[in-house]
């Protein structure tokens, strides 16, 4: 059984649309620290990189996060091997 209390060892991060351009990268593999167990704690940890990360991921900014291709909530737990995508509100249709 996977346990939400166990921190993920490796995550694949995907950045899309404006966030990809602002961060200057489309994807990266990360080994976050033990305190990163949820979508919300991952966002906070990434924002601490400063610069564009701090600006784009500030709490007031609208950022959508999907885990394994499903829209996630702040309390969605993360597990090793998850693909986590960060993107602006969608504008299709």
């Amino acid at each position: 059984m996977r346990d939400a209390a166990t921190p993920p060892t490796t995550l694949t991060l995907v950045y899309l649309a404006r966030l990809r351009e602002t961060f200057g990268t489309a994807t990266e593999r990360l080994e976050p620290p033990p305190e990163v167990t949820t979508v919300a704690t991952l966002r906070t940890w990434l924002a601490a990189r400063g610069g564009a990360w701090s600006t784009e991921l500030a709490p007031a900014r609208a950022v959508r996060i999907a885990v394994n291709h499903e829209l996630a909530r702040p309390d969605t737990p993360l597990h090793a091997g998850d693909e986590v995508a960060l993107f602006p509100p969608v504008t299709g249709g």
């Binding site: 995508a85 993107f87 602006p88 969608v90 504008t91 249709g93």
Partner: peptide
């Protein structure tokens, strides 16, 4: 179409006389 516009991961980027811009929701 209402759900697609707020949930499906598509993004529009426009080329205008003032340059390129991402469409705001």
């Amino acid at each position: 179409i209402d759900y697609l516009k707020t949930r499906a991961p598509f993004w529009k980027k426009e080329v205008t006389p003032d340059g390129t811009r991402w469409v705001e929701p």
